[in-house]
Design a binder for these strands. Structure first.
Lengths: 346, 346
DNA sequence: TATTAGCACTCAAGCACACAGAGTGCTAAC
DNA sequence: GTTAGCACTCTGTGTGCTTGAGTGCTAATA
């Protein structure tokens, strides 16, 4: 009985039509609709038989008896794999979307906005994950009688500072001494190697008793600044677009999604996951494939950009499963290209 | 005919009851409900007459014929003025809500989160508007062969840095020279005074031709950093809470609101407005009183915190007009107090 | 004169029911 | 293997009915 079913050419065509149609309309697709499209000359009855097979194979489902068919995650997956293999190229027509901006932070925020605006979905952009976490430069300076400022440069692109309040002004000699101490111990070491023991050693070197409180403040400030430099920032935009797609279910799901965007913790998992994948190109997660629980009803498309020194960041789009994949992929490609170009120039 | 109506004691009581009841239930309030509350011993018929008067006076409306009454903005305003005059004190029970955090940025973000979490409305917190915009400290240092870092301290709490790429390494003497130049011209002057002319003068001083490109980069970097330091940051939290209150109307209004939160431009207007008011205490905007167009269906409650040196910032709550004003006001007071205390200590 | 009881009226919400339309699965004919 | 035809299912919509909450007005009452 259980004759094995294979996805022959005709079934593939029908499946593609179903998905394409559903992407457009958002309504379950009936056999008659497919038949009337005319690309394959078959009666609705034949289509019905094929659709029945496709259902058995798990590519489509009926949301209820006597309604049309809707693609499952598996169906979307087939469609995406198929369509994406037909080489989507980046949409060059957008031209110079990104204005010239200096600060990395501003640039990435702008990328997020452009993505969200062009696609009308929600976008996410992460700052590059540092590969080179060496402390390149560290310097303490006196601002005025009660404040010092510490400047720390980590890797190739990140500078952080920290204002440090002290009880009494230090004289030049003392500042110099601290600077020598800090540079001796910290310059060139990796961020990961900075720990309490190291700090203890430095304190002993400095002649503990005398400066104990000042040292404490300085160390605290430096550890803080370093950790901050290491942190991955996440920029999002267009989260409110999610509300436009009510097939994302009830308001509760939408709320949960928006909360995920506000929390950001889920998003950073997503970014990690996207970076982890070996495939350096476009990455597509459909429904249950999503690494984030609250996004099991969405599709996520990500891409990776790369700084000249090798640090990588993620840019991505989050939207309904019924998403315009072609457009999203081409927009992402286009912006990734543009980012890569900008970074190479600089 | 047009006998003049005055808001006598009894009408006031009834109005208060209507508003209070509506705040709780969100349903139009009928005469019978008020009558049965028992605080004033009147039959529903009497209440009906009074309610009719209140409607004529513009404090309440009927959403449709033969439904109960709902407060208008004017009605809310009466209630708020009345209830707030009964001295709400800050909710001390919350105790040490704010963990000790060093960076101002983190502190304010945390305030926003606590506000949103405690009230279940949306919150907004702005960084203090600098009053003292003097450049306190400015220093250029060489990081490595192709990069400099500029550190600028503005006012009492803000330090910014900027990485600057240069074509060739500078020797110590050159760096020193630049530092002297920068400090001579910039230290102690107000941020507003930094303009192109000043930059031109400095360039001439430096011996234009030789360093033209380097100077250009440095100036650009510095102007950028200064402007950044001057910028007011806005932190928001709990924007998704807005969706919980569907009396905020259809999904379109909710979307518009969320977009306002993402855009932030509307929010900064709001913050400006809130700071402008002479009243240094709690400020309440109801419905149409809102300075932001998209929030005409909301109520906004703001408070002002102050740094020891006089810089002021805003913290506020945005929610439905049907808002728990007492709780919101007490939470805001509590957090404002706590902020003030933290700043005074430091 | 202010309050109240009573009554007629209005409207929204819930329920039952019928009906049209879309879509399916199956069978028999081509 | 394909198709026409038919019976069946289910949703959505429109209609009519009932109930309950609430109002405004009038006349009686304290």
């Amino acid at each position: 009985m259980a004759q094995e079913l294979i996805l022959d050419d005709r079934k593939q065509e029908i499946l593609k039509s179903i998905v394409a149609n559903y992407l457009e309309t958002g309504e379950p697709v009936g056999s008659r609709t497919i038949s009337k499209m005319g690309s394959l000359n078959l009666s609705s009855a034949t289509i019905r038989n094929e659709m029945s097979d496709l259902e058995e194979m798990g590519y489509v489902v009926q949301p209820r008896t006597s309604a049309g068919r809707v693609p499952t995650d598996k169906g979307y997956r087939f469609y995406v794999d198929q369509v994406m293999s037909e080489k989507v190229d980046s949409d060059k027509s957008q031209g110079a979307l990104l204005e010239r901006v200096d600060k990395l932070e501003n640039l990435l925020m702008q990328v997020a906005k452009v993505l969200a605006y062009n696609t009308q979905y929600a976008s996410i952009v992460t700052s590059p994950r540092l590969r080179n976490k060496q402390v390149k430069f560290i310097q303490l300076s006196q601002v005025d009688e009660e404040r010092l400022v510490a400047v720390i440069v980590v890797g190739d692109n990140v500078a952080k500072n920290q204002l440090i309040r002290v009880q009494r002004p230090l004289d030049n000699e003392e500042v110099l001494k601290f600077n020598i101490l800090l540079n001796t111990f910290l310059q060139g070491i990796s961020v990961d190697e900075i720990n309490i023991e190291l700090m203890q050693t430095m304190k002993r070197q400095a002649g503990e008793g005398e400066y104990a409180d000042i040292l404490e403040a300085i160390f605290e400030g430096i550890v803080d600044a370093v950790h901050q430099a290491e942190e991955t920032h996440i920029y999002t935009s267009g989260a409110s677009n999610i509300l436009k797609y009510n097939e994302l279910g009830d308001i509760n799901k939408a709320t949960a999604l928006l909360e995920t965007f506000e929390e950001q913790t889920g998003l950073s998992e997503l970014a990690d996951e996207a970076l982890k994948s070996d495939d350096k190109n476009i990455q597509i997660y459909i429904g249950d494939e999503s690494p984030v629980q609250n996004m099991k009803d969405c599709s996520i498309v990500t891409s990776t950009y790369e700084l000249p020194e090798g640090a990588k960041g993620t840019i991505g789009i989050i939207g309904p499963k019924r998403m315009d994949y072609k457009k999203v992929v081409s927009t992402l490609k286009s912006l990734t290209d543009e980012l890569d170009t900008i970074f190479r120039k600089e």
